[in-house]
Nucleic acid binder design. Structure first.
Lengths: 251, 251
DNA sequence: GGCTCTATTTCGGAG
DNA sequence: CTCCGAAGTAGAGCC
């Protein structure tokens, strides 16, 4: 797991270390120390001398972490070219990317530690509670939203985007359901309004619009009322296993 | 900078190490090794045995990094309670948070490395090219958008959100400007349409809607045309220094 | 405290 | 490839 480690490397040693392990191409590399960081691309930023931990992953992603926060101070999601060398007697890392064209440059003023780790590729990972899962569960048992609802389609494309759930209520009226895993916002209401309008225009039928979420913000509720749309609180969901057999029900 | 480091620590040593440095409270801690990670809270996730680098920052944030990607596999932006101890002869880290109630648990099955680093608090950091800066620049010189434009307000609140720039054109017509730092999407068009509708309703006047961005996507352009809205390409921006004197112009 | 919005969003998926 | 929308979004700003 731990492949290699140097404490207080000289600039030369740091460059050699990084080059060697980048060559290999499968290690996660970290350099901790005082750095200067510059980024240009989608925006531009510059951080003068400060203490950071620089993490280089095997997929070419680079992130520069400061003393706080989950989010790195600077980063690059992917790099097409990675260059390591000496500049003015300092070890320097340059990560470049095309499309979008961007460049991250880290100068290691005082590297305190460099290490190479080998992380085997990911193990089984399960996430529960996404909107996709919520959609699956509600399509499987729409009575949670409303009694007598019949699901016609999921992810139904319209000219203004995809409708999460498309159904008919017990009286045969068309129902557009917009799902939100978290609190429903004005944005969600507007999305719903667009869908309802589109379906109304397309079918000429009466169309109800439901926002199904665990909660709504107050402004969203006002918007809903103003637009003649409805909110349905959806919290505890029935447990539905995922799998291809579920998808085929609605293909 | 490097405070302490252990290779292949025993569970007991790992727990002692973490406790000691958490006590101190100002270090960035990292554990690399084979772990099992579980999260419950806003959603739920579970990752069985895999290789990860766990990073604990002094602000209480925790992140579990896998072999790829900028984004951690699991994380916690802030923790109200951090607990380290032995469970079934394994070192275990539990990071808990209230509001939202969530919990991250990492079991270190085979810790390969643990280290403590001291990162001095951040240095000067400058970011250029954000939407805020774009807004400042365009408010300062709206002729970049259109000749004869007079800015009335920035971040003007309406019942459906805040309008980036609110202005009158050379003929005295009201203009709502929606800014996007990157390519304008359908979402931006809908947002703009919402603002325009709101202002139209509120004032009863004729209202123009402009999407100002370096580019638009094709579907967004279609939507714009359909809604009677306009696109203005805004690329090179005048260089405007930020500072309180700028803000006061529009307070 | 809650609510809203931006982001160098990242990431994954669909056309 | 582009485009779109979700995210346990994170984080900042405002009320």
């Amino acid at each position: 797991m731990l492949l290699d480690l140097l404490v207080d490397p000289s600039p030369d040693d740091l460059v050699a270390f990084l080059r060697e392990h980048l060559q290999e191409g499968s290690a996660l590399l970290q350099v901790a120390g005082t750095c200067e960081v510059a980024y240009t691309g989608r925006a531009a930023s510059f951080a003068d001398a400060g203490d950071y931990v620089v993490m280089l992953k095997a997929d070419g992603s680079v992130q520069v972490h400061g003393y706080k926060g989950v989010k790195p101070v600077n980063w690059q999601p992917r790099t097409d070219d990675l260059w390591v060398g000496l500049d003015d007697a300092q070890a320097v890392l340059v990560a470049e990317r095309r499309s979008p064209e961007e460049l991250l440059r880290v100068a290691f003023l005082e590297p305190a530690l460099v290490q190479a780790l080998h992380l085997r590729e990911g193990s089984g990972f399960v996430l529960r509670g996404s909107e996709a899962e919520m959609q699956r569960a509600l399509a499987h048992d729409p009575s949670v939203i409303e009694e007598g609802l019949t699901v016609l389609d999921r992810e139904l494309p319209t000219d203004v985007g995809g409708i999460d759930l498309f159904a008919r209520d017990r009286y045969g009226r068309l129902v557009v359901v917009e799902l939100k895993r978290a609190k429903g916002t004005q944005e969600a209401v507007h999305q719903l309004a667009r869908y309802v309008e589109s379906v109304r225009r397309f079918t000429g039928e009466e169309v109800r619009g439901l926002l199904a979420a665990p909660a709504v913000t107050k402004p969203a509720l006002v918007q809903l009322a103003a637009a003649g749309l409805e909110f349905v609180e959806v919290t505890a969901l029935p447990d539905v296993p995922d799998g291809p057999e579920q998808g085929s029900l609605f293909g």
